[in-house]
């Protein structure tokens, strides 16, 4: 039986199903706890579940706590061999609303793989900014106008937050490389303790890209070093995805409606320079340039 099936309600070209099926391919049969968000809406409507694994959705903020309960129960009942516990949560559920429960899960050291599906805003309700929205992005709560050029504050560094909690395995991945996601999910399960995997996933409607362009855009995020693919094991950086001929960030920005104002706005140049600086810093920090 398939672990995740066709017939779900994702938009054509959505990155979430690619991320989910790739993770499940790596983990095999598992127990899934899901936060409120796009994934919950598209896959768990009553009588239309797309899941072939045990699945629970409770509320927005508590997916990590629900998973912690499942993990503790499996341990107490001696049923840990039945499969790992995996959380799927969006970027808003991870970085804003559910960060307390996530912190608690890390702190108590539950043996859980927490997967953050990062589409860089609350896309389920129509593109409101979250902690993981990148600067310059035009959302309904950070609209670009006469004064402001979209979101001002930087993207929250969840990888560092997870590392600060001493999570045993912390990695980032992208839907542009599904086989890499599968490998990372498999690798994560070799560790006992809390694990964090953040997957960059394209939202075709929120970002304003054509369904066909979804994978090329996700690839450009990696190739410009705006979304570095890194892997930490026990707090040590062990692997990064090297980039040959790093591209300027404009190439990534100009394909998306959420950034198009940057090319006309009086402060646009500043924001693009700031994003380029972030990319350069990422490349330097992780040694991405091949």
């Amino acid at each position: 039986m398939k672990l995740f099936g066709s017939g779900h309600g994702a938009c054509p070209g959505c990155g979430l199903p690619i991320a989910v099926k790739s993770v499940l391919e790596g983990t095999g049969p598992c127990f899934v706890a899901n936060a409120t968000g796009c994934l919950e809406i598209i896959s768990s409507q009553y009588g239309k579940s797309a899941w072939g694994v045990p699945y629970i959705h409770s509320v927005f903020e508590n997916s990590a706590a629900v998973a912690a309960g499942i993990e503790a129960a499996l341990k107490a009942l001696g049923r840990k061999d039945e499969g790992p516990v995996v959380v799927f949560a969006g970027d808003g559920a991870t970085a804003d609303i559910g960060i307390g429960c996530l912190s608690g899960m890390f702190d108590r050291g539950h043996d859980i793989l927490y997967v953050c599906l990062d589409n860089e805003a609350y896309q389920n309700t129509g593109n409101q900014q979250s902690g993981l929205t990148p600067p310059g992005s035009n959302t309904t709560t950070t609209p670009s106008g006469k004064v402001l050029p979209g979101k001002i504050k930087p993207k929250k560094d969840m990888v560092s937050i997870a590392l600060a909690h001493k999570a045993v395995y912390v990695a980032t991945a992208s839907v542009a490389y599904p086989r890499d996601i599968t490998r990372k999910a498999k690798r994560a399960l070799e560790f006992e303790g809390p694990k964090y995997l953040q997957i960059h996933s394209v939202c075709v409607t929120g970002w304003g890209v054509d369904g066909k362009q979804a994978i090329p855009v996700a690839k450009l995020a990696v190739e410009t070093a705006l979304y570095p693919l890194v892997e930490y094991e026990n707090g040590q950086l062990v692997r990064v995805k090297k980039i040959k001929d790093r591209k300027p960030v404009e190439e990534y920005l100009k394909l998306q409606r959420r950034f198009r104002h940057l090319f006309k706005h009086p402060k646009g140049k500043e924001v693009i320079a700031e994003l380029q600086k972030i990319a350069d810093e990422n490349a330097k920090k992780y040694g991405l340039d091949a």
Partner: peptide, 19 residues
């Protein structure tokens, strides 16, 4: 309660969505 059976989504034929 509101428990769905696995892979019930297969009965939703999404093939008529696109152009």
């Amino acid at each position: 309660g509101a428990v769905s059976r696995p892979l019930e989504s297969l009965k939703i034929k999404t093939g008529d969505w696109g152009t």
